[in-house]
Design a binder for these strands. Structure first.
Length: 131
DNA sequence: ACTGGGGCTAACC
DNA sequence: GGGTTAGCCCCAG
């Protein structure tokens, strides 16, 4: 499992570990950096499978809305995530949202911010969702 | 093999 | 600004 190569989860963990302290990123970004394309959900899945004493800073991964996906569930993990982020200096606004433009992290950029890598993912066929 | 859901996201209203 | 719709594809039962 740890050494299993066929798991895309490992790639996700590898990316998440690279997230510097006091910085956050989105599931979609992690997925892309992990070479998973747009499987943001997979990132969430992979993170949910992490054990308690993991070295992976899963708390630094939030959703594209700048919020904690676990927050709505009010789960213990969600609380842990909030506390960890707060301790790292990542603060959310009154609405409980984190400014991705400020704390957003990307591998390529050496600077603090500068927009996200690419808004998110590119909808290859947005024509399909036209209604 | 099939079905249901998911720690998501972008577009639409 | 928030709620809904559609799409992605993987995981668990």
């Amino acid at each position: 499992m740890v050494a299993a190569a066929g798991g895309s989860h490992e790639r996700i963990y590898a990316i998440v570990r690279k997230i510097p302290r006091g910085r956050v990123t989105t599931y979609g970004t992690v997925a892309r950096l992990a070479g998973l394309g747009r499987h943001a959900r997979l990132v969430g899945y992979a993170l949910s499978a992490l054990p308690d004493g993991t070295s992976v800073p899963w708390h630094r991964v939030i959703n594209a809305q700048g919020r904690l996906s676990l927050d709505r569930a009010a789960s213990s993990a969600g609380i842990t995530q909030m506390m960890r982020l707060a301790r790292e200096g990542v603060r959310a606004d009154a609405a409980g949202r984190i400014a991705l433009t400020k704390y957003g992290w990307r591998v390529d950029a050496t600077g603090p911010d500068r927009r996200t890598v690419r808004t998110a993912d590119r909808p290859r066929e947005r024509t399909k969702r036209q209604r």
